Computed example of a mutant assay.
Amino acid sequence: MEKIGFIGLGNMGGAICKALIAGGLDVTVFDLNPKALADEAYQNKAAIADSTGAVWKACDIVFLSLPSSKQVVPIIEEFIAAGVQGKTIVDTSTSYPQTTRALYARIKAAGGQLVDLAISGAPADAQNGKLMALFGGDAAMHEKLAPIVRCFADRYPNLGESGAGHVTKILFNFVAMSYVNIYAMAFPLAQKLGLDMDQVYELLLSTGMGCGTMQFYVPKMIHQTYEMAFALELAHKDLSYCRSLFEEFQVPAFLLDGELAMLRTAIRDGKGKMDYSACIGTMFEFFEGK
Rank of each mutant, 00 (worst) to 15 (best):
D198C: 03
G160R: 10
S206T: 12
A153W: 02
L25T: 09
L204W: 14
Q199N: 12
I7E: 08
G208C: 09
S178W: 02
Y241H: 12
E161Y: 07
A54D: 12
P34T: 02
S277I: 09
M12E: 03
T213Q: 08
M185K: 04
F135E: 08
D91L: 03
A266G: 09
G270Y: 14
F284T: 08
T100R: 08
A184R: 00
K237T: 12
L245F: 02
K169M: 08
P147G: 09
G112A: 06
C17H: 07
A15Q: 05
D275N: 12
A36P: 04
A109E: 15
A47N: 13
S51V: 06
E227F: 10
I267P: 11
M209I: 07
A19Y: 02
G289R: 05
I182H: 03
K3W: 00
T225C: 04
G160W: 10
D31M: 09
F152M: 12
M283P: 01
L145M: 12
F152T: 11
V200M: 12
S93E: 08
L103P: 06
G281I: 00
G165S: 08
I48N: 03
S244P: 00
E202H: 14
Q85F: 12
A153H: 01
L131S: 04
G86K: 00
A190P: 11
I170D: 03
A139I: 14
S51R: 12
N173E: 11
S206V: 04
A176V: 09
E143K: 13
D26Q: 15
G281T: 07
E202P: 01
A46K: 09
I21H: 05
D257L: 06
C211Q: 03
N44A: 11
Y156C: 10
M197A: 13
L256C: 09
A229V: 11
Q199K: 15
C211P: 00
L159V: 06
F287D: 11
G53N: 14
A81Y: 07
G53A: 15
M209K: 04
G111D: 04
P252C: 07
G160H: 09
Q85E: 15
G137E: 02
G24Y: 11
S95I: 07
H142R: 10
L134A: 04
I61D: 01
Q224M: 11
G136R: 01
A253M: 03
